[in-house]
Simulated scan of single mutants.
Amino acid sequence: MDVQFGFGTVHDVAERATLLGSVEQADRDGLDHFSMSDHPYLGARLDAYATVGFALGRTARISGLVNVTNLPTRPAPMLARTVTSLAALSEGRLVLGMGAGGLWDRIADLGVAPLSPGDAVDAFEEGITLIRKLAGGGPAVTHEGRHYRVREIEPAPVAAPPVWTGSVGRKSLAATGRVADGWIPGHAADWLSKRYRESRPVIDEAAASAGRDPREIRTYYNLPGRITAEPLAATRDSEGRWLGGSPEQWAEELTGAVLDHGASGFTLFSPTGGSPDSLTLGRWAAEVAPAVREAVAAEAAV
């Protein structure tokens, strides 16, 4: 099984040097992806897609992920052009993270007409479908949907990147099952959480109803935590949330997540939600990721 390891970045304008240094370090060290959020109403923030493109141009192997794209501010036809262009320029090193839009009061402040929660999810699912139509070549696309309309638009001659969603509610989870490739549980929920236990069956049922194998939708976790030189007495708090531990404790926990719970990948964040420091990032790439990969490969070979 191919297990993905990435990290979340801080991307304020003032921290641009740290961000780029972290991505370049992760690229050298063999991590799979870097992740950044998309909040265009925050003036101190670098634009997520501009930053991903710039960082991909300075690296050779690592993929970029906007976790997740603020779709209401990036209309699907134009987002299709952005992601297929980045995929072409980076030779496929892009993951399309998709969300329906969360902070609608701030989104509306940008001049975007607010949608009801149900309509936002409908637009989210339709947007994913349209982006795929506008990728991969073929005849011109005319799409007359409820939220998006295009007429005789030529698809890009580039495959659409894999789509991971940040779905939380039942309707959005069902959309993930029908049209997405991956799912990132919200609020940094992990494989032992109630959120995961109650949400994943909704995805699986929707996938099966759409004629898909539910295993096609892989689960990737945003995972805050410390990587310490010495083992911790407790790796989870009283409510069961992961705190971290030594590289060996991380490797044991994540190997179990893959083998026992079907996890497909992990994005490391600092405990405060920002970018891991260089020492932590180095331990993640050089100690935790290889140990998990080796353990999973050994189990698969049995």
Results as ranks from 00 to 15, higher is better:
M1F: 02
Q4G: 06
E15R: 11
T18F: 10
D27F: 02
R28E: 14
M36R: 03
S37D: 04
D38A: 06
H39W: 03
F54C: 06
L56S: 09
R58V: 10
S63T: 11
T69W: 09
R74D: 15
R74W: 05
A76T: 08
P77H: 08
M78P: 02
R81A: 14
V83A: 04
G99S: 11
L103T: 14
I107L: 10
A108L: 12
A113R: 15
P117I: 06
D122L: 01
T129M: 08
L130I: 07
R132C: 04
A135K: 00
A140C: 15
E144P: 05
E144D: 15
H147K: 06
Y148W: 15
Y148C: 07
E152A: 15
P155S: 05
P157I: 08
A159H: 13
P161E: 05
P162Q: 07
L173K: 05
T176P: 14
G186A: 06
L192A: 09
R215I: 02
I217F: 13
Y220N: 08
G225N: 11
T228M: 09
P231G: 09
P231N: 09
A234E: 15
D237K: 15
R241A: 07
Q249M: 07
E253Y: 03
T255C: 06
A263H: 04
G265C: 07
L268G: 14
F269W: 04
G273C: 09
V288S: 02
A289W: 00
V296L: 01
E299W: 03
